[in-house]
Computed example of a mutant assay.
Amino acid sequence: MKKLVLIALVFVMAQVHAQNNVEWDGKYQLQLSDFQSNATQIGAVKINSMHTASSLDFAFQMSNVEFMFTKNFNAKVISSFKRNAASIIATDSITAKYLLNFAQYEFDLSELYARKLRKEIYDKKGTFSDVSFLQVLFNSIQQHYTEDHAMASKNTNLGQEEEKLAAIHSAVLQKINELPDFCKSCKPPKKPNKLFN
């Protein structure tokens, strides 16, 4: 009986985690209902603010031998949106829509940089590469992602300048399409192995 309860509890926890986390798939469009933080409020406020909780994550666990012979790390780099950490604070529903559009842009931007990281790893990892080079790649990609996000936020007034946001967003989607071999579940074409990095 105890095992059955434990199994049911683990299943429920897995379901809650899956419902909270939205992984980028190119189809899902964020909704206001995805901003489930208690801080979310539309109307009766004097400020506009948004925390999208889009993130670019990279983690893996493998032996040295596995690492040596692994070339494709696509599945280890994840672009996701965490509903319970996401908030929109807006003075009215029109502003909330601008913020939502900016949040979708940011979610797509995180996937673009996930693909750039996957490609960098694929292109630069040799058989005898040291694992430490991955941190350098991740830090560089993360910095560029943060800079692009900050510039878009500034240049579009956090999405309120719709035409500017639409142009920037369109460019991001185009760049994603230019990296089709580097989606999370994709297998890039095989290339000769680089023995030394």
Rank of each mutant, 00 (worst) to 15 (best):
K2L: 14
K3E: 12
K3V: 10
K3W: 11
K3Y: 14
K3N: 10
L4K: 13
L4M: 14
L4Q: 15
L4C: 09
L4H: 11
L4I: 11
V5L: 13
V5P: 00
V5A: 12
L6C: 07
L6T: 09
L6Y: 10
L6H: 09
L6K: 06
L6P: 04
L6M: 10
I7F: 14
I7S: 13
I7R: 14
A8V: 10
A8S: 15
A8N: 06
A8K: 07
A8D: 08
A8T: 10
L9I: 11
L9M: 15
V10D: 02
V10C: 09
F11R: 00
V12T: 03
V12R: 03
V12W: 06
V12H: 01
V12F: 09
V12A: 09
V12D: 03
M13H: 02
M13L: 06
M13D: 01
M13S: 07
M13A: 04
A14R: 05
A14V: 03
A14Y: 06
A14E: 00
Q15W: 07
Q15E: 14
V16Q: 05
V16E: 01
V16L: 08
V16S: 00
H17V: 08
H17A: 11
H17C: 02
H17F: 09
H17G: 01
H17P: 03
H17D: 08
A18W: 07
A18P: 03
A18K: 08
A18C: 04
A18N: 06
Q19N: 08
Q19S: 01
N20Q: 09
N20M: 06
N20R: 04
N20C: 05
N21I: 14
N21P: 05
V22L: 14
V22D: 03
V22F: 14
E23D: 13
E23I: 08
E23M: 15
E23K: 15
W24Y: 15
W24E: 11
W24K: 06
W24I: 09
W24V: 07
D25Q: 15
G26N: 13
G26K: 12
G26R: 15
K27F: 08
K27D: 10
K27H: 12
K27W: 03
Y28A: 08
Y28L: 11
Y28S: 13
Y28D: 13
Q29F: 12
Q29D: 04
L30H: 04
L30N: 03
L30E: 04
Q31T: 11
Q31S: 12
Q31G: 08
Q31L: 14
Q31A: 12
Q31Y: 09
L32W: 02
L32M: 02
L32T: 00
L32C: 01
S33P: 00
S33A: 14
S33D: 11
S33C: 05
D34M: 02
D34P: 03
D34A: 02
D34I: 04
